[in-house]
C-alpha cells in the first residue's frame, strides 16, 4: 500500500496531519481543536474520532490519556428528526 493520508475524522474528512498542524498553531484545548478542525461535528458526533484526536493531543503535549478530558457531550445521542421532536414523539412511552 502506498503512503496516503491518514484520516482521523471520516465524517468531516480531517487527516492526522491537519490535527498536528492545528495543535502546533496553538489549538491545544480539545474544545477549540474541535472547532478549528471540525472533528466530531459530523453525523457520528465524535464517536469514531474523538479518542483518536485525544491520543494525538496527549502524545504531543506529553500527557497521559487518563489526564485528558473529553469535550462536552451534547445531546441527542444520535440525530433525531425535527418533525418528531415537534410532535413530541420522542417522549412516547413517558407517563
Amino acid at each position: 500500500m502506498g503512503k496516503g493520508k491518514e484520516i482521523v475524522c471520516f465524517c468531516e474528512d480531517v487527516s492526522k496531519e491537519e490535527i498536528v498542524k492545528a495543535i502546533k498553531m496553538g489549538f491545544k484545548d480539545l474544545e477549540t481543536l474541535k472547532r478549528f478542525t471540525g472533528i466530531s461535528t459530523g453525523p457520528c458526533q465524535g464517536k469514531s474520532c474523538l479518542f483518536q484526536v485525544m491520543r494525538i493531543l496527549a502524545q504531543m503535549e506529553g500527557k497521559k490519556m487518563e489526564e485528558m478530558a473529553t469535550t462536552t457531550i451534547r445531546p441527542p445521542a444520535r440525530p433525531i428528526l425535527i418533525g418528531a421532536l415537534a410532535e413530541g414523539e420522542t417522549r412516547a412511552g413517558e407517563g
Binding site: T41, P43, Q45, R74, P75, P76, P79, I80, L81, I82, G83, L85, A86, G88, T90, R91
Partner: peptide, 23 residues
Amino acid sequence: AENFCKRAVEIFPRLKFANLMRQ
C-alpha cells in the same frame, strides 16, 4: 428541543425533514 422544533416547523414546515444533530 421540543419548543424550538414545534415553533420552527410552524414557520418553516419543511424543517421537519431535517435531523437535529447537536443542541
